[in-house]
Design a protein around this nucleic acid. Structure first.
Lengths: 256, 256
DNA sequence: TAAAGCTATCCGATGCTATCGGACAGCGCT
DNA sequence: AGCGCTGTCCGATAGCATCGGATAGCTTTA
């Protein structure tokens, strides 16, 4: 008999607990019946999970409807604060957004996903706000591609196989060979662009932060509406600002 | 036979998962053996929990040492952002800290604990930083007492029984009768003070936000070193600022 | 006022599955 | 080269998560 799918084995109750947590994350709040209906779980099962989370202090019960509590907020904030790289990078990302007036990001690879570690808004920035911790496929974001370009081919392959390359926006790269040539040109140019590959109408410009050993720590990005960033002269000033930021971060990393 | 202790019944595996999560929250990172040793759990059990959390994307494995991932950060940030009361209150707390130069807080009651929903620092503020989501006993903080003063006696009793009143700092109230007279005077004065009851050397001044039905939504607080706030004239200006903030919040709540 | 149709919560039996000890392989240190 | 540590995997046991049903409390509707 074939081995069980590793994604479905192990600690099923823990898995359903997080299914419930993620449901409440999406829906903000919910009753036992609602959760039970949407997740197709028996009411009594849902209830016992909710009761446990409530006892642990992670869940609040307002007259029959449950919502996630501030204990999770504290958990997340603690993780953020104890992340050294974020501490180093944050001020630079803040000023980058301030100087350019656009959105600025710093992202790292985590579990094969491009993960926003620091996010900042400029005065002209588009309204869609990505929260810290937001994750996206590496293959469809500029930060992701900038990082991928400096990972080993085996690791890139592993990530692509794990998360696939489905179309997310008009220009998403969905072909593996196309991705590899794109990564090659990113490597030589030292800069990655995303033109409506993750979200329609958004242009992203990203450069990697490389360690002394050549391994990528993460990537700095500026994102804005494709129309405004269409002007080549403006785009060049943005690239300049990104280079300054990258330089600053690399210095701060070596001084650590 | 007596009923089982509700704190130890139900979903044991979920409970141990969160034990591990909270260990990693404290220690930033840890190996299987470390966690196994500190929590007195078999290595294989710890491993299967870690593997599950890793599969779910909440945990990152850096060469054998595990740490909590940015998925928890995103979870916490999402909860914060979808909390309406926090959205209303935050700007006021920010300006309160700015105007006074001290630390400013807004806290609510959650699971019987005073829970910081919004925190802000002024330029003179003490360095110890409370993160959003931080929780403390209601009986030892000014925000907690301000809220308790407007809850039903039964609810107060329930909370006190659940969390107890152990000494936390030199002046912590540890006697129930003393607490009740204190709450009575807070109710008539409309203001609560904490004088080194939670943390030595810190003075807290708090006022509740009350709904139309008289039930408390939360409390606004300013905290600072007892020495600086010892000056009565200065303290009065702070109380004035808090009153302004409370008024602003109550207006914004009624306009909702 | 009464009763129907919700709801959340509780209970008890079944059999799945979390647990646990042990075995293995890989690594860095001595 | 060998020792001692590590993380990971396996398999058997029984503990416990699951599930259906029963109950009680609430709001709505007649």
């Amino acid at each position: 008999m074939a081995r069980q799918d590793p994604a479905t084995t192990q600690l099923k109750s823990v898995r359903t607990t997080f299914k419930i947590v993620e449901f409440l994350k999406r829906e903000t709040a919910g009753s036992v019946s609602e959760i039970s209906a949407h997740l197709e779980l028996p009411k009594s099962t849902v209830h016992s999970h909710l009761a446990t989370l409530n006892q642990l202090g992670y869940l609040v019960n307002d007259d029959g409807t449950y919502r996630l509590g501030y204990r999770f907020v504290h958990l997340g904030r603690t993780i953020e604060q104890s992340h050294e790289l974020r501490q180093i990078v944050s001020p630079t990302i803040e000023t980058l957004a301030e100087e350019t007036g656009e959105q600025a990001y710093f992202a790292v690879e985590e579990n094969g996903l491009a993960t926003n570690v620091a996010v900042a808004e400029g005065e002209n920035s588009i309204r869609r706000r990505f929260l810290p911790g937001g994750q996206a496929r590496m293959t469809s974001t500029a930060t992701g591609k900038a990082i991928l370009a400096h990972l080993s081919p085996e690791r890139v392959d592993e990530i692509v196989r794990r998360w696939g390359m489905p179309p997310e926006a008009p220009n998403t790269i969905t072909d593996e060979d196309e991705l590899y040539t794109e990564l090659e040109s990113i490597r030589t140019a030292g800069i990655a662009y995303g033109r409506g590959e993750s979200i329609k109408g958004v242009l992203e410009i990203a450069m990697p932060i490389l360690g002394d050993d050549g391994r990528p720590h993460g990537a700095v990005e500026i994102a804005g509406p494709i129309k405004r960033l269409d002007d080549e002269a403006y785009r060049e000033t943005l690239v300049d600002e990104i280079e300054t930021a990258v330089n600053e971060i690399e210095v701060n990393l070596s001084l650590r």
